[in-house]
């Protein structure tokens, strides 16, 4: 019964809690039946939903974890990565839209990769936060490594500014595989 109340009142905790081990889940605050104010909801989103790795990255360096050593950090992040049944190379045409639809000037509310990376050379509205991904296939990277980078960049580079898109559920495993194909398939526009 108690469990149900907690689940209801803190539906917002959803995904993040689901990703955490049971020991941490138990720390979730006891829910009272009262309605939460907007400010309380906001604070839950900001602090209660913050996972321990985000916490470790919330120091003024922003890019070096505090309190967890780098190897443990990477190992824990790697353990969160889930793979699609059909392998890490999906359908590049679907991946193109998730990466950023060239017919919409590269916009995409899902991957939104162009915010930080250049890709398809015909899309010029691209950010310079991450490295350019033009001609990515020629770099000889392992598609599995690319998959991990997109699913959970912190498995390779703790506290990276690149969001952990698969880990948070912004992109599903199959969708990430489609993006990996977009990056690695020689016939994809990013490699033209």
């Amino acid at each position: 019964m108690k469990k149900i109340v907690i689940a209801g009142a803190f539906a917002g905790l959803g995904l993040l809690v689901a990703c955490q081990p049971a020991a941490q889940r138990a720390e979730a605050p006891k829910a009272e039946k009262k309605k939460l104010s907007a400010e309380e909801k906001f604070k839950i989103a900001l602090f209660k939903n913050q996972d321990k790795w985000q916490k470790a990255c919330s120091n003024p360096t922003q890019l070096v974890p505090e309190g967890i050593d780098i190897d443990t950090f990477k190992k824990e992040m790697l353990a969160t990565v889930k793979y699609p049944e059909g392998g890490v190379m999906g359908d590049w045409k679907k991946g193109e839209k998730l990466f950023g639809d060239p017919r919409k000037q590269g916009k995409s509310l899902r991957g939104n990769c162009y915010a930080c990376h250049c890709g398809d050379p015909t899309v010029i509205a691209c950010g310079n936060i991450g490295p350019s991904l033009r001609g990515y296939a020629k770099r000889g990277k392992d598609p599995k490594e690319t998959y991990i980078r997109i699913y959970n960049s912190w498995a390779q580079n703790p506290c990276s500014v690149m969001p952990r898109l698969g880990y948070h559920g912004v992109l599903k495993p199959q969708e990430i595989a489609d993006i990996v194909a977009f990056l690695h398939d020689p016939s994809s526009p990013i490699n033209k």
């Binding site: 913050q50 936060i129 948070h168």
Partner: peptide, 21 residues
């Protein structure tokens, strides 16, 4: 400096670390 949410961002990520990008 609080990194949180589904983008793992903070004010500081965009406005200190990445400023001028």
């Amino acid at each position: 400096w609080t990194r949180s949410g589904a983008r793992d961002f903070s004010c500081g990520i965009c406005h200190t670390v990445l400023s001028d990008k």
